[in-house]
Design a protein around this nucleic acid. Structure first.
Length: 422
RNA sequence: GGAGAGGUGGCUGAGCGGUCGAAAGCGGCGGUCUUGAAAACCGUUGAACUGAAAGGUUCCCAGGGUUCGAAUCCCUGCCUCUCCGCCA
């Protein structure tokens, strides 16, 4: 959520920056309502002042045995007037709030201007794409022939975009999770969390999934609760409605959670394989930061995510998203794209963002500075990494001519010493 | 699922129609003392909106209601706790 103050004082600047991210939003109605809101509020407050004065007066008059009937009658009228104006005010305030919740964040000044993903900026590459002396197979063919991925039965049990991991496939997923969590907790100093996977509407609104993207979420039938689409939601909302202390920062959390996504509107994309599932595991990093430090922390968070790929020996590149490709809540985002041999291209395996105070404002996360002021911290998060897609990358990059898979060195302790699948 | 209790400031907790944004304690901050620290003592200490300021308005889980006036009374919802039942 943008601050009302910013909107009131720099509206044309805000609109220019929103336009950079393809968001043409008309503020005309809001402006009119905001004006009306302020007028009404002033009026109501003046009436309430009168009411409060009289409320103090009445007991005094009573004690002095002076007549109060006229005053009571007058105050009844005032109270009625208040309730009429307040009813209108309430509606206007709710409309204004709802409107503000639909406005995306402003892109940071270092974000390249662009229309879509083709304008994203490559920041760096790490490693090299492996060369194969044979024809590479895609991961679902490899996984099915090794008996470690079962898409048919996943579909039978649940439907399209669900998969069953079997045997060493399931073990590989679990090994990756443990490897990533150990790395982040032991080496990168994140505190491990195991949060709820079902959250309420307030939490979803706090991080920005709601109100605009409800169709992307799985909602429970008998309550206003949702399956989380990312660990970002419960982790960021840990400090919702709290006032933290400046000395607490930076706060760093990591969690592995399943992520549930409807994938509405992605018909025909990645219909086969693990790339786009309704349920997948992801190790998430979340940070809360003093405003001044957040961009330095974004770079650290990105490095922490990259470290996973480096230790796994997987070739990747880092891309800085352009203004037109930014997510709703993000001010700046780096995607990490891992090399996928069978597709002969890089695919997103992590997304690391700085939300500045956008989420903090929505979720009412604040902190007290050392000199006593109340401010909103900046929130950041990144995947480190999407586990299913990491399995894809390992299967494809470490495949051998006979269809077997070599297990990266760092994972072998987590695989009971196994060096190869198949 | 059945029965009961309760939701008050960073925390514990009092208040149960007007003098209450709310006692007290703890914690925090500042000070006195001290070589320094602890202890003790003194002072101070909630948030949002509005205003140049003085000030004003709001907030005692949320939403309605009663009343001239609600933290306090009534209704609804949400949440927490205790006991019983069931259960990983």
């Amino acid at each position: 959520m943008l601050s009302i103050k910013t909107l009131r004082e720099n509206l044309s600047d805000v609109q220019d920056r929103l336009a950079l991210r393809n968001s043409e939003i008309s503020f005309d109605q809001w402006l009119a309502r905001d004006k009306r809101q302020r007028v009404l509020k002033q009026k109501v407050e003046a009436l309430k002042f009168k009411k409060n004065q009289s409320s103090k007066e009445i007991p005094r008059l009573k004690r002095a045995k002076e007549p109060i009937d006229a005053l009571l009658k007058e105050m009844k009228v005032v109270s009625e007037e208040i309730s009429v104006d307040e009813a209108e005010l309430k509606i206007i305030e709710a409309e204004n709030k709802d409107f503000l919740l639909t406005i995306p964040n402003l892109p940071h000044s270092t974000v390249a201007v662009g229309k879509s993903e083709v304008d994203n900026q490559e920041v760096r590459r790490w490693g090299q794409a492996p060369e194969f002396s044979f024809e590479v197979q895609n991961h679902w063919v490899l996984g099915e022939s090794l008996g470690i991925l079962d898409f048919e039965r996943g579909a039978k049990i649940s439907g399209a975009r669900f998969v069953l991991y079997r045997g060493l496939g399931a073990r590989l997923e679990r090994a990756l999770i443990n490897f990533m969590l150990d790395l982040h907790t032991d080496k990168h100093h994140y505190r491990e969390i195991l949060p709820p996977f079902i959250v309420n509407r307030a939490s979803m609104t706090g991080t920005g999934q709601l109100p605009k993207f409800e169709e992307d979420l799985f909602r429970l039938k008998d309550s206003d609760d949702f399956l989380i689409p990312t660990g970002e939601v419960p982790l960021t909302n840990i400090h919702a409605d709290e006032i933290l202390s400046e000395s607490d920062f930076p706060i760093s959390y990591t969690a592995c959670t399943p992520c549930f996504r409807r994938e509405a509107g992605s018909y025909g994309q990645d219909t086969r394989g693990l790339i786009r599932q309704h349920q997948f595991n992801k190790v998430e990093l979340v940070q809360f930061s003093r405003a001044e430090q957040s961009y330095a922390l974004l770079e650290k968070l990105l490095k922490d995510a990259e470290a996973v790929l480096q230790k796994l020996g997987l070739h990747y590149r880092v891309v800085s998203l352009c203004t037109g490709d930014l997510g709703f809540s993000a001010a700046k985002t780096y995607d990490i794209e891992v090399w996928i041999p069978a597709q002969n291209k890089y695919r997103e395996i992590s997304s690391c963002s700085n939300f500045e105070d956008f989420q903090a404002r929505r979720a009412k996360i604040r902190y007290r500075t050392t000199d006593g002021k109340i401010r909103h911290p900046h929130t950041l998060n990144g995947s480190a990494l999407a586990v299913g897609r990491t399995v894809v990358a390992i299967l494809e990059n470490y495949q051998q001519e006979d269809g077997s898979i070599v297990i990266p060195e760092v994972l072998r302790p987590y695989m009971g010493g196994i060096a190869q699948i198949g």
